[in-house]
Amino acid sequence: MFTVVAEDVTKTFREGRETVAVLKGASLHVEAGEVVALEGPSGSGKTTFLSILGCLLSATSGHVVIAGEKVDQARPSACQAVRRRHIGFVFQQFNLFPALTAAENVEYALNLKGVDGTAAKAQARELLERVGMADRMRFLPRDLSGGQKQRVAIARALVASPSVILADEPTANLDASVATQVLELFGELARREQRSLLIVTHDPRVRHVADRVVGIADGRIAA
């Protein structure tokens, strides 16, 4: 069963008087528990494609189905609901909230998904334990290493058990050994918990944990 279905997705942007086509009919299917690496040169449309799959951006045409729900591009609230229920993000720059501790970063994401109080605290603790951050829960991001920050970001992406995790260059800011650990953690979590994991990357190490590598060039997916 496919948890991510993208069919003939196009995206154009207006730049002054010109219309620039960034995606020119990109299609991709990702199964539950599958780890897919999406590779491509700069400007190929990787981030735009990821934004559309993550319901952060609407496609100009084509259709997207996430975890069986058709993404209605015309309704931002519907997109937000799909994002809230089914998608977790991991970013290159971690994007943790600097004023919140590791535990609070995860707890806040739980709050946004409707989990509050002691339940949120307990789940945040459990998620951080799963990524090996049990002893750093009270630390602010500034007191964590790059690898630790990315682990916290992964724990946050796992909040509310999303069907799909979208990761944008998750190892770009990590040294080699830490990057390997993070990728292994990613792969293990995706397969064990049957989540679809799409990793946009330039890092060749990702190929070792990916089930499939797809390329994107000039706005089209190449197998």
């Binding site: 993000f89 994007n95 909230f97 946004l112 909040v159 509310a160």
Partner: peptide, 16 residues
């Protein structure tokens, strides 16, 4: 701004 973008990405709305 990036943090607010993150709030949206992890499930928050403009209203939040």
């Amino acid at each position: 701004l990036k943090e607010f973008g993150t709030v949206k990405a992890i499930g928050g709305s403009n209203l939040d």
